[in-house]
């Protein structure tokens, strides 16, 4: 039963990902990315990572996709028509396929054989506890990185023309 769910979610994820890299319409690409990311959220649920599934839906589904759609709207749509494919795409396909085959070969050679069914979820309490005790410094640094990056994004997006105004 879980195997069927896994294959369904994997199909959604990979179809969405293929849509991102294949479609010629940028808005469709952004929506396909959303589909793929929601598939990944389902995979997280299957791996008993409820917190990450929630975060995935909130941040990717709610924030990042909206920001990307805004960026697509602010840069002109017809601009994208002529600039979709790089002439080097066959080489890219070759490189990506080779990378996939090497990764799968490595996983086949040495992969721990265990089943996920006999496990329990990592409780929110434990995750939050380790995030705020063992990983507290890294957590604070991550929040600082986010703050600095977003302030920088605002400054960059404002441009030079508005700099003189108070």
């Amino acid at each position: 039963m879980t195997l069927v769910v896994f294959y369904l979610l994997a199909a959604v994820t990979l179809l969405g990902a293929m849509g991102v890299v294949v479609t010629r319409n940028v808005v469709y690409a952004a929506l396909a990315l959303l589909l793929s990311l929601m598939g990944v959220a389902g995979i997280y649920l299957l791996l008993f990572a409820e917190f990450l599934a929630l975060v995935q839906v909130l941040i990717y589904g709610g924030a990042i996709t909206v920001v990307i759609l805004f960026a697509i709207m602010l840069t002109r749509l017809r601009e994208y028509k002529g600039v979709m494919e790089n002439p080097q795409w066959p080489l890219g396909l070759l490189a990506a396929t080779a990378l996939f085959l090497v990764l799968v070969a490595a996983f086949l050679v040495d992969s721990p054989r265990m089943n996920v069914e006999e496990r329990l979820a990592v409780p929110f309490l434990l995750l939050g506890g380790s995030l705020f005790s063992q990983w507290a410094i890294a957590f604070e640094v991550a929040s600082l990185v986010l703050l600095v990056a977003l302030i920088g994004a605002i400054i960059v997006a404002r441009g030079e023309d508005s700099r003189e105004r108070p």
Binding site: T2, L3, F6, A10, T13, L14, A17, M18, V20, V21, V26, S36, V40, I43, L46, L47, I68, A71, I72, T75, Y80, V83, M84, E85, N86, Q88, W89, L91, G92, L93, A95, A96, T97, L99, F100, L103, V104, F107, L108, S111, P112, R113, M114, N115, V116, E117
Partner: peptide, 28 residues
């Protein structure tokens, strides 16, 4: 459902993403 399933899924997702980076010309 073993670890291998998830590893192959993530490898496929990674390879598709790498192909997108190499084959596209639009920054978005």
């Amino acid at each position: 459902m073993s670890l291998l399933h998830f590893q192959v899924l993530s490898a496929a997702l990674f390879a598709i993403g790498v192909y997108g980076v190499l084959a596209r010309r639009s920054a978005v």
